[in-house]
Design a protein around this nucleic acid. Structure first.
Lengths: 142, 142
DNA sequence: TCCTCTTTGATAATAATTTTCATTTAATAT
DNA sequence: ATATTAAATGAAAATTATTATCAAAGAGGA
């Protein structure tokens, strides 16, 4: 998805497209595919806008996640990470390397059948979150 | 698994089976199937042993998890929850109700195929964690 | 018993996140 | 353009969950 579409999405929301928000969004776009913590977003945002505050970063990430522009997830220990979420894809699958900590996105989706099974038991499923833990190709070699 | 087996497992470990540890374990056994936070474990433990401290609860939960007597997971926002983990089952699947917050365990496992796909890409998978979000049978009705 | 090592509870410290609040900014009406 | 109003911001304080510190208590062995 293009930069402008994200901005348009934010613009069309109940929130104002302020400079700070555009900056946070810009950081996320430039790091497409990565999973950044709030602190990491702050550091990169300060390169573009030196006196943006941590509270604004948190507030903006939260808003962007509520607009589903970002996906907010907990991967390793104790802090949230954010990534660009293309609206079509609600499902996030990741492989977390237990050796180097790298997080790789995977696309394959065989879960529909499993979801259907669960729905037979009376649930209505709206989303899922799947993480694999193992060794990434790099760490498998050594 | 029976109460005594957990105690035996702890007893056989490098750690002593102290009264406090037995109390925490007892709380977890009495809440089989539930996912308790450290604070919740403390409250229940204090009914059995009024002056057990929060630090001991955290330390014990951590140890029990490292012995794989408990499973430690992050479900909703910002705090860890613990549940009894029968050693055979490393894989945890849950349905989290987005309405009432209830967490239900599911057993079905169709993920082997997916794991194999990922391994073809050079990863070596050792574990996974799958959560579904939706409405539980209770909330689906209303 | 004495000695040593482990565990404990209270409390301080830390880390991540949220709230508060006075000030700034943006959007709208004038 | 200016005044008005509500939303957004940055700095700092507050909160929440968790971990570390440390002196005292407990357990086991020589």
């Amino acid at each position: 998805m293009h930069r402008d579409n994200y901005k348009a999405k934010l613009d069309a929301s109940q929130y104002k497209l302020t400079g700070q928000r555009a900056t946070v969004l810009e950081v996320m776009i430039r790091n497409r595919g990565k999973h950044l913590s709030a602190e990491e977003v702050l550091q990169q945002a300060r390169l573009l806008r030196p006196n943006i505050g941590i509270a604004t970063v948190y507030r903006t990430l939260e808003k962007l996640a509520s607009l589903e522009i970002l996906y907010k997830g907990m991967f390793d220990s104790g802090k949230y990470r954010y990534e660009l979420a293309d609206d079509r894809e609600h499902h996030h699958h990741h492989v977390v390397c237990v050796n180097c900590g790298s997080i790789t996105e995977i696309k394959d989706d065989l879960l529909c059948e499993l979801e259907k099974n669960i729905e037979k038991q009376g649930f209505r499923i709206v989303d899922h979150d799947l993480k694999f833990f193992g060794y990434c190709p790099n760490c498998t070699k050594s």
